[in-house]
Simulated assay, not measured.
Amino acid sequence: MKNSIRMLGITMGFGLLSLGFSAGAWGAEYGPRMLFKSRATVSGGWIRVGDVAVLQGPRSALTEEINRLPIKEAPAPGEAAVVTRREIESALTAVPEGIRRPWEPAPLEIIVTREGRVLGAEEIGRIIAGHIRKNLPGGNIQVEVREVRNFEEVTLPAEARSCKVWISEPLRKGGWVRANLVFFGNGKETERLTVSARVDLYQQVVVADRYLKRHQEIQAEDLQVLPVNLQQLPPDAVTNPGEVLGKRMIVNLNAREPLRASLLEVPPLVKKGDVVNVILERNSLRISCLAEIKETGRKGDRVKLVNLGSRKELFGRVVDAGTVQLDIN
C-alpha cells in the first residue's frame, strides 16, 4: 500500500489530538503485538495506550505512535478510573487499516490509578520556611515553621515539582502569617492552597555561659553564641563576642540570657583613692607630681585629683591606670 493515508483526528474530552500514520512507511507489515495489563498507573493527565498495554516487537515509529494514542483523561491524583474495552478499541481506530493487528481483544475493564503524593503539614512547613529563608536579608537568621493550620491534606500529581509562595504579612520577628502556595507541573498550575503558619525566627547572639555578677569583667569562657527567638531578643543584643571581651557588667546577669550593649561598660582605669602620676608637658617642659584620684575614671575621662604635696585640687584626663595628664584649660 503505497498511497499516503489521510491524517486522522481524535477528539477526547476537551482536547483535540491529531495523529498521522503513513501506511507507505510500513506497507502491509504487522503491527506490534499488544499485551494488555489488568491494572496500570499513570503520572500525567491522560491515559494512553502505552499505559495499559505492553507493545512487543521491534521498536519503530509505529510502536511509538500507538503508545501515545490517548484513551481518556486520567483521574485525579491518587484516585483510580476504569478503562473499558470499548474505550481502548475506540483509541485504536487511529491505527491505519493497512496495518495488520496481531493483538488479542482488550480486557473488559482495566483499573488505572494516577500517581500522586500526599501533601501534609510538614512538607508545607518546609516549603514556607525555605521561601522565608531565601528572602530574608543577611545570613544569620534561622527559620522554623512550628505549626500549619487551616488546610486539608491534598494529593498532588506526580508531575507537580515546583511551588511559588506568597506571604501577605511582613515578617519582622516572626509569628502567625498567611501564606498562598501554588504548585506547578509541566508548566501548568496543578494545585492552589492558602494556609496559616506560625513562624519562629532565630538569630545567633552572645549569651552568658554562667551567672555574671555586677562589675565582673567579661572573659571568653563566660560566653556562648546561641540562637535566640527574635520575639524574645532585646534590640541591643550583642552578636559578636569580640565586642564584649574586657568589658564589665553593670548589673547581674543570669546564665543563657543575651548580653546587651546597655548592660556593659568599659572598666574604669582609676578609682577614688588611687595615687597616680600627674604630668604636664609643654614644648620641652615636663612637670610631674603625685596626686590622689577623687572619682572613678576610664581612659580619656576628665577626673578630679588632689596634689599630695600642696593639697591643691587639680583636673586631668586619664591616660592609663597610673597616669593622668594635667588639664589646665
Rank of each mutant, 00 (worst) to 15 (best):
N3L: 13
G78M: 03
R178K: 11
A160F: 00
R302V: 12
G98E: 15
I99D: 08
E144R: 10
V238Q: 09
I218Q: 06
Q216W: 03
I124A: 01
N283Q: 07
G78S: 06
D327Q: 09
V266N: 08
T93G: 06
R192S: 14
V195P: 11
Q203H: 13
A160W: 03
G187L: 09
D200P: 07
G125K: 06
N329A: 08
W166G: 11
L17Y: 15
V54Y: 05
G44T: 03
R101K: 15
G175E: 07
M249F: 03
V251Y: 09
N140P: 10
V54W: 04
I110A: 01
P268H: 06
N283D: 13
R100C: 07
E295L: 00
R85I: 00
V112E: 02
E257P: 00
S262G: 09
Q231G: 14
S196K: 09
S162R: 12
R214I: 08
A76K: 08
A53C: 10
G130D: 12
L17T: 14
P58G: 03
G130I: 02
K312G: 12
S18F: 14
W166I: 12
I167R: 04
I5F: 13
P170L: 05
L233C: 04
L171R: 02
R39V: 04
F36Y: 15
T63R: 07
S18T: 12
L16S: 13
G20D: 12
E115V: 02
Q216L: 05
R286Y: 11
V83H: 03
V165W: 00
L92T: 04
A25M: 11
R114K: 11
